[in-house]
Design a protein around this nucleic acid. Structure first.
Lengths: 117, 117
DNA sequence: GATAGTAGGTACCTAGAGGAAAGTGACTAT
DNA sequence: ATAGTCACTTTCCTCTAGGTACCTACTATC
């Protein structure tokens, strides 16, 4: 299901970086630094523990997040953004800037489209 | 289903720009210029007509794509990227560059992760 | 009469993503 | 003895994105 985008050279990186929940997780880790599981869970708010686990595993596998397990009681696990993950920061900043300048235009386009017809 | 990401200021723009199939469509329109429906369909390859229609409508509604209908027989419809859509070009270029430098690192991280354990 | 091309629309069906809720294990605090 | 904490895991359920197949209207071609 990931194959179809041979027409687009950025498709693979989009799959990795912009799949569901990855940007809130990476953003939060980059913004607030190293965090434990429940901290992430609370800050992101509406994500369920199961999905958060899945996404963190995927991000760890892709090398964007570093997971450190401390075998204490109760267990403690810390997540931090990796160097590779941090290399996405300027990209995210560009996105935020585009958003600031152009999100309103998208809204206006939607209003126009929905009004007529 | 779009609400949960209040923790992340780029979440709205990610929803608009990086939802499924949008990058291949925008990329193709930007690369090859104005095109008809079947041209897009063939170039992207594995997309079905129904989904392509859905995505094009969404992109048109968001103001990223301009649709021009010529009431001839047989009907002719042309799609082109809008100015707002073109404003994404530098962003896509940054993504392509990140991809060139770091996609291999993601691959290596995956190999490491899958090997141990 | 049959077929193909054009740009879709519509109805039906299925696979998979994601949510809700409960369980786990080992220890601590009350 | 009970409840609570942490970081999940597991089971069950729902919902929707996307696929398949067929339909439209009109013309040209064989």
């Amino acid at each position: 299901m990931t194959a179809p985008e041979q027409a687009c050279p950025i498709a693979p990186v989009v799959d990795i970086v912009f799949s569901r929940w990855t940007t809130p997780i990476l953003w939060t880790l980059n913004e607030y630094g190293t965090q434990r599981f429940v901290e992430l869970e609370r800050r992101i708010g509406t994500i369920t523990a199961k999905v958060l686990t899945q996404r963190l595993r995927q991000l760890e596998r892709d090398g964007l997040v570093v997971r450190t397990y401390h075998p204490e009681v109760p267990p403690r696990v810390e997540y931090e953004i990796s160097e590779l993950g941090r290399s996405l920061a300027p990209l995210f900043a560009s996105l935020a800037e585009w958003s600031q300048h152009n999100l309103a235009k998208v809204e206006q386009a939607r209003l126009r489209y929905d009004k007529k017809d």
